[in-house]
Design a protein around this nucleic acid. Structure first.
Lengths: 157, 157
DNA sequence: ATTCAATAGTTGAAGCGTGGACTAATAACT
DNA sequence: AGTTATTAGTCCACGCTTCAACTATTGAAT
């Protein structure tokens, strides 16, 4: 706990603001890069990636929603659009008739294959290659810590 | 530049994904905290803060848009809503009749005064107090670097 | 067995953000 | 002075996200 629990000092405020605007800028740039080079949004790209990594290139909607960071409803809409574009297909799960399996189509897979190099280049250019390896690793650890801390703290004040 | 310029290795991919989901989680939690405790969105809160720090508690729309991370159009909408809520007022700038000055009202100022402690507590709980001072400082520096790198790199591939 | 609760996923309306077209005012050029 | 370019800001249409119902299926409890 810091010296004064109620306010942020000038330094802390600066760090916080830089995180806020910096992360916004990076994420926005990546989103724009992806859109321009491939016509996909980050959410769509993430869906393709997760499905391609899943066995049978298929995942239940709820698992997909957890992996991609998205609400159920948001995923439904996203997948709906992707289905119309022919990138994925939906079929009711055999074992649990409430469930829906989302399956990557051939078209979806090759779309991902085309997109991936552009996206990787973008992530490198905007993030990985900008930082020293040590700083990049630190970044990963910091956000692991931050993410974990959120798990077991709901209420604030 | 890393060993292989085209792909991310497993470690890099892990760091990158943790940044993606971690920053999303932190930002979302802060947004939700603020909404619940004060009824304000981050954008609105940021507008209040910047205006309160400006001399005359007043800023031109474009300056405000630069400080808050937002497009012109987005700021117009946000300020429109805030004006209807009585938090700010708009008047055409005296020196440049194209310009519009956005002014913080008394109601807006006291709304900010009420909100600030809750928001500070939230930022501490979700971010500042979760990290060691060294890591928090590192975070600030890392995003300064990342932000700066974006300034002078537009095209990607 | 029947009721009650929990889970999976969808739907539709409303809100917010984006990008491009648009108006108005100022600055720059000849 | 008169034309053109730039800048400030708004407006509108569209798309994505959220939130609160809603349906359907499964599991638990009596």
């Amino acid at each position: 706990m810091s010296r004064d629990a109620l306010w942020l000092d000038a330094q802390q405020q600066l760090h916080w603001r830089r995180f806020l605007s910096g992360s916004w800028a990076v994420l926005t740039a990546l989103e724009r890069d992806l859109e321009e080079t491939t016509g996909l949004s980050m959410s769509e790209y993430e869906v393709l990636v997760r499905l391609s990594e899943a066995e049978g290139r298929s995942l239940r909607m709820s698992q997909l929603a957890d992996q991609v960071v998205a609400s159920r409803s948001r995923l439904t809409h996203t997948v709906q659009r992707m289905e119309q574009a022919g990138l994925v297909a939906r079929r009711t799960s055999s074992c649990d008739r409430r469930g829906v399996d989302c399956v990557l189509t051939e078209a979806g897979f090759s779309r991902l294959a085309d997109a991936a190099p552009h996206h990787v280049a973008s992530v490198r250019a905007r993030l990985v290659d900008v930082l020293s390896p040590a700083d990049f690793a630190r970044l990963g650890e910091i956000f692991t810590t931050l993410g974990a801390a959120l798990e077991d703290r709901e209420p604030v004040s």
